[in-house]
Amino acid sequence: MQKKEYLELYHQMVLIRRLEEKAAELYQDGKVGGFLHLYIGQEAVSTGIISARKPIDRVITAYRDHGVAINSGIPVKRVLAELEGKATGVSGGRGGSMHMADISLNYWGGHAIVGSHIPLAAGLALGDQYAGNPAVTIALFGDGATNIGYFHEGLNLSKVWNLPVLWVCENNEYGMGTSVPRASAVSDIRQKAIGYGMPNRAVDGMDVLAVRAAAEEMIEQIRAGSGPQFLEANTYRFRGHSMGDPERYRKQEEVRQWEEDDPIGNYQKKLISGRHATKADMDAIEKQVDDEIAEAIEFAENSPEPALDTLFDNVYVEE
């Protein structure tokens, strides 16, 4: 990896962190409506995974999607504009926090019914298999999604048809407020992949380089025809499930311990110890991110609301 690449990963993770912090503020100011699920703490997972894809590889995820949106290449201003429901938002103000997609970037959303996008991911991969495209579909979902039927139907079908999918479980320890041992028959989520005869691995989801390395290897095996594979990334969300979560289900001490395993802090140490970048390089990136966020907020604030006469646009494709 070149220095530029190391720094780009750092840039993306810091950008996501600052975006989410700002989104929480905007929510408190009443500028963001609906639900808001922050990605703080999990930045290394999506950043590492998506940095390993080629442009032909498709990405699809669940509702905690702002980080995936940024990593997929959506400008932060269009994410913030969507959070504010503006016409310039990535989904034109129709989708909000949970439903962001830009198919020109091969990013297919942003799906908010837990697990329901898992069969869709199998279908995206089926499309590439049918057309003979050498593409891999990367499907991210939480630990909670592995307890719903869609997951099992989707994984089964992907194996029966040998579809090119990398299944990525972001195990952040809780499905809303229910911990993995209280909700899942097995706490090592990847064991579920064994039941479908699927190659599987676990990776430290707080280590962006480890995530990237695992994803790179698995994606290339899938591209070479291995069939679907399963990666469990062990991570933690530092904030509540969504805004207004009283967090009665976990102790502050537990959160504090995980915060010491901060993926951004971990990466800073690696960059320094591996001599990939200096403190000054990182400071420069943080400054750049602050500017990007400020600019994005200005863009979102100055963007128009969707016109009321566009209410019925895109219910159907006009034929």
Binding site: L120, A122, G123, L124, L126, A131, Y150, G154
Partner: peptide, 17 residues
Amino acid sequence: SESAIVGSAIGAALTGL
């Protein structure tokens, strides 16, 4: 697997099939 049938058909349709 009705969920997989319709869900994956949607995914395939999104790719232009």
